Structure formats: C-alpha cells, structure tokens
Amino acid sequence: MKLIKKVSSLLVILTVGVGVFVGCGNKSSEKSAIDIIKERGTIKVGVFSDKPPFGYVDANGENQGYDVFIAKKLAKDLLGDESKVEFVLVEAASRVEFLQSNKVDLILANFTVTPERREVVDFANPYMKVALGIVSQDGTKVTSIDQLKGQKVIVNKGTTADAYFTKNYPDIELVKFDHNTEAFEALKDNRGAALAHDNTLLFAWARENAGYTVGISSLGEEDTIAPAVKKGNEELLQWVNAEIKSLGQNGTIREAYNETLLPAYGDTVKIEDVIIE
C-alpha cells in the first residue's frame, strides 16, 4: 500500500514537472506582435479611402493623406522602408472589427478617442485635436443646434457625430451613410439641412466646395485622434506610443501637417489647433 502511494506521488510530481516544462517551452516559443510583423515584412494599417486630406485614394490609385503619411513613417522606423506598409481600407463603423479580427495591426483612420471605444480597443498617444462641426449651405446656414429641430442631419455610421446626436439630441432625425462621399453628396442633394462630422474634415471640405460654410465650428468637447491597436496588444501599443512621441519631437508630425493638411486648410486653420507634437 505504501509502495502504491509512493509510486502515485512520484507520478504526480513527474506530471506537474512535465507540465511546467512544456508550459515554459510554449511561453518562450510564442512570437511577439512585433516579431510577427517583422517576419511578415509589412505592417497592416487600416486607413480611410474617402476622407481627404486624412486618408484617401488618389486618381492613380495611391493612398494619400495625413494618416497615410504617418503610417509610412511608422513602417520606415519599424521595418526600414516606407513601402513596407500594407494599407487596408476601412469604414468608420468597421474599424474596431478589423482590429479584433486581426485584419489590421493598427488603425490610423482619424479615430477619435472616446470612453466607449477605449473599452474595445487600446489607443496610443494622440497626434491630433478634433471636435464636431456642422456644415450647411450658405443660403440656409446653420449656426445653432436650435435650427436643426424638425430637420434632418447627415452623419456617418459609427462616428462620434452619430453617437453625439443620438445621445444628446434624439429628437433630431439622422440620415446615416457608410461612406463619406455618400454623406457629402446627400448634403449637396438637400437630403439634410446640415452635415455633422469632424471639424478638421469640414474645414477642408468647405474650402473646396463653394457655397458651404462651417457654421458651427466646435460642438461638444474637444477630443483627440490617436492610433489604435487590438485590445491587449501591449507590445505594439508601447512601440507606437514611443514612436508617436518621437515623431512629434523630431518634427515629423509638423512635416505631415505641412505636406497634407496645410494645402487643404490654407490660412483658415492654425496648426496648433490641429496637431499634437
């Protein structure tokens, strides 16, 4: 009986020991997020295709814009070459899902930081300031929310504008679209009295489209825009945090503004009101 107990105890010890050994082996063999990106040879970044001057596809089929400029700099610093970035086109409502399903490593798609979004993604250091704005036709310019009562407001699904009006003004009817191009065409077709979106986008759009004015330049609180990674991806988050800080300190963020946003804004916007260095 004693012999059986001794044998049983020995088997338990061996089993536990093997389990610990195997566990340690598996842990050491796990590849980090950075290693996976380096082995792949590209970093997958989610960007917009129709939101100039932040993320868009030009006439030659090339990705352009402020977010794209920064994404290329991240690729250069991580992989040694700006061309080592794989752009994945996203819509506002699909950004979280693309991270959660590993379709992208990083989102650089004008992603406004909100408490609700922090619950499902991890935001890195911000690189832009933003607030909501309202654009409308000059002939029926909207300068107050009171003017929108009984009217329709155009928004993009899954944006902060959508969430803001749904929460704060449930009596105002929203006309929602997936794509920015669809939303702005709806405004031109008079399918809404006004369009609500990021003021940083509206400043540029109104300057390019005669007959429209950003009558409300700041609605609600000022927010920030930041890169986002999959929830729990601590290694990549820490790397992006350090990288965004470095890009601000070495002048790259300012360079991105001058090359991509300044031509769209001209002297109508102050650089310090938009970028974070």
Rank of each mutant, 00 (worst) to 15 (best):
V240T: 09
A196C: 05
L202V: 03
T140A: 15
A193C: 10
K188C: 12
L247V: 11
A163I: 04
L195R: 04
T166I: 11
T166L: 08
R191L: 09
S246W: 09
E182M: 14
P227M: 09
V130L: 00
K129A: 03
I154S: 02
H197C: 13
N156Q: 14
G192V: 14
E255N: 05
T140V: 14
L236E: 03
L237H: 04
A193S: 14
K188R: 14
I244K: 01
I225N: 06
L195I: 15
E234H: 13
G211Y: 05
N199S: 14
A206K: 10
V142L: 07
L237N: 01
Y127K: 03
W205A: 01
N168H: 07
L187I: 12
K141R: 10
E208I: 08
I253M: 13
W205M: 03
Y127C: 04
A242K: 07
A194G: 05
N168I: 01
L202P: 09
N233M: 00
A183E: 07
A210V: 12
L148V: 10
E221S: 13
T160R: 10
G192M: 13
L195N: 03
D171N: 12
G139T: 13
N233H: 02
G150F: 02
G248T: 00
N250D: 02
G220N: 08
K230E: 00
G192I: 11
K167L: 14
R191P: 07
A210P: 00
A228S: 01
N180F: 15
D223I: 09
H197Q: 14
H197S: 15
H179L: 15
